[in-house]
């Protein structure tokens, strides 16, 4: 019993964020943002899933590297908070990315019980960006409803009136994010083997 309590305390202690974790996650966020600078151009292009297709690769690759180094619950949420502090100036609805990070982390904690497995990081990285699709879809509908032009968002987004195409694009986004996450995992594994990426 005592041993169990000690283990739990130790686990809690090791899951606490240290300064080096915060610094690395912040640098990874800066990297994601630099490579995601096309966001202001994409937000107004009326194509279903265009933001996610344009940013999916970098928004999965770099966060996975962050999670693979830090390996603590909350790492993805931290990155999402840092990212949203910038996105607020570019496209406020994308602040909902925090919510997506919470959901993605929830799923990972439920199925993998933490970030010990590399695939847990890949799963979180794969879910993170695609989850913004339904949220943005809801946002546009709500926003157009405010504007008095009900459901125009749906018809405006090319493909969204065609359910098949919307589903296809969603799958393409998931596939892209999966590829990005796997690349992130491969880089991290190689650098871990070389002793560069230490926890």
């Amino acid at each position: 019993m005592e041993e169990k309590t000690t283990n739990k305390t130790e686990e809690k202690k090791s899951n606490k964020f240290k300064i080096k974790d915060i610094v690395f996650l912040a640098i990874i966020t800066a990297c994601t943002l630099v490579t995601g600078a096309v966001m202001p151009l994409l937000v107004n292009v009326p194509l279903f899933g265009i933001i996610q297709l344009g940013l999916g690769l970098q928004f999965s690759l770099f966060p996975v590297i962050g999670m693979m180094k830090v390996r603590k619950p909350g790492a993805l949420i931290f990155m999402a908070v840092f990212i949203s502090l910038f996105l607020v100036f570019m496209f406020p609805p994308m602040v909902m990315i925090i919510l997506c990070a919470v959901v993605a982390e929830g799923v990972v904690l439920l199925f993998f019980r933490g970030y010990k497995s590399d695939w847990a990081c890949v799963t979180a990285g794969t879910l993170y960006m695609p989850l913004t699709i339904p949220l943005l879809y809801l946002y546009y509908n709500a926003f157009y409803t405010v504007n008095g032009e009900e459901k125009q968002a749906v018809s405006m987004f090319i493909g969204s009136s065609n359910v098949g195409m919307a589903v296809g694009i969603s799958f393409a986004v998931i596939a892209l994010c999966f590829v990005g996450s796997v690349i992130g995992m491969l880089i991290s594994r190689e650098l871990r083997k070389a002793g560069v990426l230490k926890k």
Partner: peptide, 11 residues
């Protein structure tokens, strides 16, 4: 460097 041939350069 021959004895290090199979090592990762960054290690």
């Amino acid at each position: 460097l021959a004895h290090l041939a199979d090592r990762h350069p960054h290690s």
